[in-house]
């Protein structure tokens, strides 16, 4: 039997009377990559932020390794479930300071910053450069390295390549996949790039209007969409890329 990394059980999120998520149910297995797709405002980021308790569900439960997120010690949960955002926020200091930032929060130090930098596809020359001087793609890789330094078992990725140009996008994507294969990391990956979802995902969840409308293996979901919503979304996206 496959082990479960994360499980959503009838999850709802309501903020100030607005229903951001309704009745989300689903399972992410260990070592798998699940891509979250759907139109803007569908609730993808909201669903992601439930997994490391940056938001609290108003209804239902979210389990990480079969333990409800609210029962986890918060710090331990966020070490286990790492997150990378669309825009890479650099802290004041050098690239090395930034890579070590997460570990230092926990009173640890970064053993081999050079290796980590190479892991995310950056030259070790950059180690002592002020992080603020990096390009967008370089910053995103440092942000990725900073999260990877914590050795998360689960990685939440929120449109991490959408602010990057085509080359940087491929590099970052490859880096993430390398890490996944090496450490058997579970990936929960929000992307609005359907080709990227095809390339990286084992399974795809399609969200719209705060609900998960369709879930399925990446191979079949794109070829045989079941719901009219997904069909409409796919043909719209295809129009755009043409």
């Amino acid at each position: 039997m496959e082990q479960i990394a994360m499980r959503f059980d009838n999850v709802g999120v309501t903020v100030a009377g607005n229903r951001l998520l309704t009745d989300v149910t689903g399972t992410v297995h260990k070592g798998r990559t699940v891509a979250l797709i759907g139109p803007s405002g569908a609730g993808k980021s909201t669903l992601l932020s439930l997994c490391n308790l940056l938001r609290t569900p108003s209804a239902g439960s979210v389990y990480v390794e079969e333990k409800e997120v609210r029962e986890w010690p918060v710090q331990a949960l966020r070490q286990k479930v790492g997150m990378v955002f669309q825009t890479a926020t650099m802290f004041p200091g050098t690239v090395e300071d930034n890579l070590a930032y997460g570990l230092r929060l926990h009173g640890q130090s970064l053993q081999n910053p050079e290796a980590l930098l190479e892991n995310v596809g950056l030259s070790t020359d950059l180690l002592h450069k002020p992080a603020a001087e990096l390009s967008g793609g370089q910053k995103q890789r440092v942000a990725l390295g900073r999260t990877l330094a914590m050795r998360p078992d689960i990685l939440l990725l929120d449109e991490v390549t959408s602010a990057l140009d085509i080359h940087a996008k491929h590099d970052v994507e490859t880096t993430i996949l390398d890490v996944r294969d090496r450490f058997k990391t579970t990936l929960f990956w929000v992307t609005h790039d359907l080709d990227q979802a095809r390339r990286v995902a084992d399974e795809v969840w399609f969200m719209a209007g705060g609900s998960v409308i369709e879930q399925g293996p990446a191979t079949s979901l794109f070829e045989h969409p079941n719901t009219p919503e997904l069909k409409a979304f796919l043909s719209e996206e295809e129009e755009e890329t043409k």
Partner: peptide, 10 residues
């Protein structure tokens, strides 16, 4: 963004 990043890093 920075504060949330620190929280997300545990």
């Amino acid at each position: 963004a920075e504060i949330t990043m620190v929280l997300a890093l545990g």
